[in-house]
Nucleic acid binder design. Structure first.
Lengths: 214, 214
DNA sequence: GCGTGTGAAGCTGTTCACAGCA
DNA sequence: TGCTGTGAACAGCTTCACACGC
């Protein structure tokens, strides 16, 4: 809703607030202040207030924030108050694990279609989905209102698959392939890459431990 | 190797360079300059040179970098030239997928033990591992030289498990549980959280699409 | 000429500190 | 009094631009 640019770091933090507020509400806290939120999330209260101020005034001086109200506002800002439909591309081991991951649906992210380039996999059942061939991608995306593509193909094919998704109308990509894909303009990419996470972790672990040498 | 502090953002980018250099080498490029690297990774050449300068001088004026040499140096800086042993805690659906994920071993990250709190799971075989009870954690960590813990338990238990791992000597945590855990001092935590990724993505997708309302 | 390495400049994000309101 | 919202100060990261060496 703000017409000016909000820093991306701020947007990335909003889901953390959503999660913390959800927990607080479940614990029965109807009011919360930036101090309390900050100590949960290990952030300074000033940062939380500043982040929220990009989007409006949600608190009451001297009292803090109404948990329920702030949560609802943030969910609306992030567009979490609607259903988001996703398709999966790549139904190998990783893809199957993603389909069966129980964390998406409760947050209104629904994987409603699965695709694979391998003809041997097309037509098989995974979870409650029938694997489709890539030729059906375009039509399915439009018909089912799919706006997010989850990419779980080998690195070598990922760039091609991402470009295909985008050209067929998908604007958001959740990429599990181990590469830094080039995002076509106007798209949003998020990468899930445990190996990269580990590889930057070892820098800090380096002198404290580490086994054998190669 | 630098005695002064290197910004964490820089450390996080190094694995990207490692990956790009590996690809370049496989393609036969024995030399590379910051311009070329930058266009692969969608970064400015200046940033790459600045990042590398935190660690030393790896290039030759007028020529660029020797791909093989720079790659070896970066791998050494990140301590990727040794084997890293990890244990997994939580062998539910997610945990089993992690054990079977084929991306870790080629990068010298080896999951050498698996634990679960549920007695029904203890003793079962997953991949080539026998699931152990939490009571064996401490001894196994020490005996096998485990320095990384992979956490794949439900959110409610994650904080407790992380603290247990740390108190038993594990300094690096790769956390798959959907929460923002508090890291005990001196530990390195990396979170893998696809739902958070999606929830910040939708902010940008909000007006371009989105299905039905709740 | 070309590309690195690097101080300096510029910019972006974080923290401070306080006015203002309940 | 207590806590928000926010301009101003500060810190940190990125980009610039050029001296240097190949």
């Amino acid at each position: 809703m703000p017409s000016f640019e909000v820093p991306e770091v701020v947007v990335v933090r909003l889901p953390l607030y959503v999660r913390a507020l959800t927990t607080l509400l479940a614990e029965g806290s109807e009011m919360v202040n930036s101090q309390q939120l900050g100590s949960r999330l290990l952030m300074t209260p000033a940062q939380i207030r500043k982040d929220l101020s990009y989007f409006g005034k949600f608190g009451k001086q001297g009292r803090g924030y109404n948990t329920r109200f702030l949560l609802r506002e943030l969910r609306q800002i992030l567009a979490l108050d609607m259903e988001w439909r996703a398709c999966l591309v790549g139904v190998g081991r990783l893809g199957r694990a993603i389909i069966n991951y129980p964390g998406f649906a409760p947050e209104a992210f629904n994987i409603v279609a699965a695709f694979d380039q391998d003809p041997l996999r097309v037509g098989t059942e995974i979870g409650h989905l029938t694997v489709q061939g890539m030729s059906e991608l375009s039509v399915t995306v439009e018909r089912r209102g799919i706006s997010i593509g989850v990419v779980a193909v080998p690195a070598a094919q990922a760039q091609e698959v991402i470009e295909r998704l985008v050209s067929d109308g998908v604007r958001g990509i959740l990429n599990y392939a181990p590469l830094a894909p080039k995002a076509p303009a106007g798209t949003v990419i998020r990468n899930i890459d445990p190996v990269l996470s580990l590889q930057s972790m070892t820098y800090y672990l380096r002198d404290c431990l580490g086994v054998s040498s190669a």
